[in-house]
Design a protein around this nucleic acid. Structure first.
Lengths: 153, 153
DNA sequence: CTTGACTCTATAGTCGGCTATAGAGTTTAA
DNA sequence: TTAAACTCTATAGCCGACTATAGAGTCAAG
């Protein structure tokens, strides 16, 4: 079904450096991914050189994309790994997506709250004139925050 | 000015374990903070035991609070450190607060965008029936994402 | 005065995701 | 054929914020 590709070079194999260049990922990183079983060369020369098909480019790009979506390498390994069991990756992936989205919601809430809190400190701080006698010994904000720490947390 | 405190125990010094307990921070962590010059015992016994005044409790709590506000230990060190120069900690702190708030805005944007993207993947995925022939060989989402990776990024 | 809980220092390990280095072998273009 | 550029493995280091361990010394209650 996909063997009719119009790729005229029938099977140009890439060396690791070429794969690295095409994906804009360091050679060392690709070897590192291999130790995590995220990718594997399709072939090894007698001398041990790794050779990759064009699929590898997609795979590396997939890894990068997934990373940019906040998936850890171990989660990516799970996603890619299920493939080997000839099985339903789908529920797993859907699950991961759902969980990740939920995590993002938590992060959003947390960051919003942090922001409100920091703004409160900043505003309280800004009102206070710089030559406030309290500043004499120690920055007043530090005291303030410290004190707040004691009472509010 | 603050010597009129109604603290009846005139100067109860804490050993590191007591400080740790009162702040709910591990002993090792306190020693670690000391290596970063975030805190210092007011006194050392001949045998080398650290002794802290009650201020240390505040200081540790301040550190924890600042950490919870996303400040790194090195930023906290800056804040606490300026104190030693008998100087204007204030502009620095205001600056740090402003920068931190700006950082949070960036994080918020990023996370919102991530969420939109993840939701799009999830939805596209959910529409696709589980017995879709495309799923035969490999979870279709993986293919999809991978393909998207290629074209969109 | 002993015993158990505490403390000391120094060093190493953890996590995640790499990067860097050494030392050796391989490929490729001139 | 030679020299540059590549590749190999194995190992160590980096960041931040710790945690854990070993081996030795100290303090306080019974």
């Amino acid at each position: 079904m996909r063997k009719l590709s119009e790729n005229r070079s029938p099977e140009k194999l890439l060396k690791i450096g070429e794969l690295a260049e095409q994906t804009d990922v360091a050679v060392g990183t690709i070897r590192y991914y291999e130790t995590l079983e995220l990718i594997e060369p399709t072939h090894r020369s007698e001398s041990g050189y790794r050779y990759y098909t064009a699929d590898a480019v997609k795979r590396v790009q997939f890894i990068k994309k997934a990373q940019s979506l906040q998936f850890s390498l171990s989660e990516i390994q799970q996603i890619l790994g299920v493939r080997h069991q000839g099985d339903p990756a789908c529920p797993l992936v859907r699950d991961l997506l759902d969980r990740k989205i939920a995590e993002l919601d938590v992060q959003l809430d947390r960051i919003k709250m942090l922001k409100v809190e920091l703004e409160a400190y900043r505003d309280r701080w800004t009102d206070r004139p710089l030559d406030d006698p309290d500043s004499q010994e120690l920055c007043s904000l530090i005291e303030e925050v410290a004190e707040h720490t004691l009472s509010s947390d």
